[in-house]
């Protein structure tokens, strides 16, 4: 668990992060979102003390981060940055091995961990282990960057716009990979982005920042339904609100028994996709199948539309 209290950073007269307080429970993904210059990166980097706070405290599992030497603290926390930050003179394998090496793991254990992570990120170890970062595509570099951050099995992972440099298709893939890995290891993640869509997709909670202040910290549905300030509402985009709400729900939540005509939809698809399918094919209802293709009922367009209404 991370507890941040009254965390503040001043540069001379300028207050860049202003009395921010928030708590991230174990296994949650907290997404910090805001416009450029709102203090997101500064807030994130104060967690692993890459930036020393002017005042306020950060506690990780109850321990004040100032009670441990900074380099030791950072070895326990995964850190992935935009543009991956891979060491250009080291192979993919050596890059991933960075923190385990710093921690003095033995060679066999490090090699096994490197291969395990490469496979996990769908980069066949035999092929990729000895490549140089410059020999990878942008998407592959980004995956190696995240693999490196996870190498020493940190309980906490900090990510600063990790997908910012990727094109939309690779980006969507990277996001779903991250969710899968987070589920598997139960890692607590604090992720910075300027993209509200990404925040809603990934976040169990979203922290909206503006000019160094935390405007709202809440689960995505609450942020959409009850934005705390006009700025938050604007960031979500008023016209987008019903669709953003739908993107949070799954087809599975609204399945009823009964038949329907035409191409079926997966129970794990988002309500937003189901609604789009109804509109596009002019159908009142869609047949629903589960992951192995077995029919489990149907979903009605009206039910979906109802879900898009402002929650009470």
């Amino acid at each position: 668990m991370i507890e941040i209290e009254a965390l503040t950073k001043d540069y001379l007269e300028l207050t860049v992060v202003d009395h921010v307080g928030l708590t991230v429970a174990d296994g949650e993904i907290a997404v910090i979102v805001g416009t450029s210059g709102s203090g997101k990166t500064t807030l994130l980097r104060m967690i692993n003390r890459l930036i020393e706070p002017t005042s306020g405290t950060v506690k990780i599992d109850g321990q004040d981060t100032r009670d441990v030497p900074a380099f030791e603290l950072r070895r326990r926390i995964g850190y992935a940055i935009q543009g991956h930050g891979l060491f250009p003179h080291r192979t993919v394998g050596q890059n991933i091995a960075t923190v385990p090496t710093l921690l003095g793991w033995d060679k066999g254990k490090i090699a096994a961990r490197v291969d395990e992570l490469l496979e996990l990120f769908q980069l066949p170890a035999a092929e990729f282990r000895d490549r140089m970062p410059s020999e990878l595509s942008g998407g592959q570099q980004q995956r190696v960057g995240v693999a490196r951050a996870l190498a020493a099995e940190p309980k906490l992972l900090l990510m600063d716009e990790p997908f910012g440099a990727l094109d939309p298709i690779i980006r969507a893939k990277a996001q779903s990979d991250l969710l899968a890995i987070q589920k598997r290891f139960g890692t607590t993640i604090v992720l910075v982005t300027h993209d509200m869509e990404e925040a809603i997709h990934l976040g169990s909670r979203i922290a909206v920042m503006d000019k160094g202040k935390l405007l709202q910290y809440a689960p995505p549905d609450e942020i959409i339904a009850r934005p705390a300030t006009p700025f938050v509402a604007e960031l979500i985009g008023t016209g987008e609100r019903p669709f953003r709400l739908l993107s949070l729900g799954k087809v599975r939540d609204l399945v009823e028994s009964g038949p329907a005509q035409g191409e079926p939809i997966s129970a794990d698809a988002s309500l937003r996709d189901a609604y789009a399918e109804c509109l596009w094919t002019g159908r009142e209802m869609l047949p629903v199948v589960d992951a192995d293709g077995a029919s489990i009922g149907r979903i009605r367009r009206d039910d979906i539309a109802h879900k898009a209404e402002r929650p009470q």
Partner: peptide, 15 residues
């Protein structure tokens, strides 16, 4: 030296 490489090195706990 690329700033991102330096930043990553610090962030991963190198002295």
């Amino acid at each position: 030296v690329p700033p991102a490489a330096n930043d990553a090195a610090k962030g991963m706990g190198m002295t």
